[in-house]
Write a protein that binds this DNA or RNA. Sequence first.
DNA 1: CACCTCTCGATTGTCTAGCAAGTACACCGA
DNA 2: TCGGTGTACTTGCTAGACAATCGAGAGGTG
Lengths: 225, 225
Amino acid sequence: MPRLQVVSVVDAIADDLRARILRGELEPGTALTEADIASTYEVARPTGKAATEQLVRDGLLVRGNHRSARVVELGPDDVRDIYRTRAHLEREVLRRLARERTDVPAARAANAEIAALVDGSTLDVVAPDMRFHTALVDALGSPRTTRMYRSLVTEVTLCMARVQGRGLLDNASIAREHALILDLVTAGDGDGAAALLDEHVGRARERLVRALGGTPGPEADLPPR
Amino acid sequence: MPRLQVVSVVDAIADDLRARILRGELEPGTALTEADIASTYEVARPTGKAATEQLVRDGLLVRGNHRSARVVELGPDDVRDIYRTRAHLEREVLRRLARERTDVPAARAANAEIAALVDGSTLDVVAPDMRFHTALVDALGSPRTTRMYRSLVTEVTLCMARVQGRGLLDNASIAREHALILDLVTAGDGDGAAALLDEHVGRARERLVRALGGTPGPEADLPPR
DNA sequence: CACCTCTCGATTGTCTAGCAAGTACACCGA
DNA sequence: TCGGTGTACTTGCTAGACAATCGAGAGGTG
């Protein structure tokens, strides 16, 4: 039995809003009142409220007491924090995967998709790229780690969506680096994989920060040793 | 201006329920219907529902579709996962703090409280112990890392509450280890601090697993190198 | 006696309607 | 121009209700 997945109305609305924000359809700073959401999706206000709360949890919306929620505006500091936290998590994941020389077929599959996108828009590379990284984390089999990473994924995706279409990404070289990381993991070289990932993620981070007009990170937080 | 903090009704209810679960007042497996919560706190059902959802997010309650929420029952696997994930996070935090030789006064203060509890019950050591560890994480100044760690803290506290009062903890030696970790950090020895923390947390983990009737962890996941 | 089915109670999901409380902003007077 | 006031908008919370769904027990069948 295919074990089907039911989504509640609230989840469906939250998913749609999430997608619209990530597509850039709703620009940063846009106000989203509960009543707005309720009317556009033709549901009651409490339903819209619940959807809003999900997105606030995800970090895609920000809201104060009795104030309408607005689409988050990510500054250079946020981008740095997101990417550093992300690197921390993935680094440890790679080290543990390497200790058992775990192969991650799902990650290889996602990477193949990236390599196949020879001339796709930079938008198309975001989804498989996130799949690649989440596949690595999921391979650990730790529900809590997966949960924590998932809370970062939406923010990372939002970062990438902000600079999409500026030709900053070269999917061929991305795919090469990904493949190399996987090879190092299966070879048991956790430190090597972690270092390469640090470089990989760190480069993406600085690219994003520059694109957002921030000053290039003064502190090199690359390999700790 | 004292910048006062208002808590909504929902938050207040969630806080109280959280405290009751952590005190062991609500045993694992206890069913908590939305209507129950609403009537005991004399609020409307949606309010109780919102509080339930908070606790489900925290991992203190589990619930399926159209099923009443129940207090989570943590098995040996859960304890191991929680403590391992926690160790991952804290390890990286210590390494980064050590790189700048950061001193963390809040952690020292919390540790002083632990040391002062010469003959307190094991219950009393839980709160300052958690304060010690969260102070370390907060010292990093990374909102995302703090957020992720907070999502683990309640589960960790629940773990400790489950075995409290069995005389498993020796606060004097705990305080000693904590102090040593802090010293290693200010001395710039991140790897040493991380290794010591691994041992510290790992010992607590195995103690908990044994107390819960699990088999002692076969895989030693202590120092990766 | 074992097993399957079906109905029923309990619980949650969602809605309508509405009041209270808080915030932001424009307006008005000094 | 500046400061206070008022109003509109939005959220927090309540009350009551109906539909959808799940679990368990009653009841029938082999």
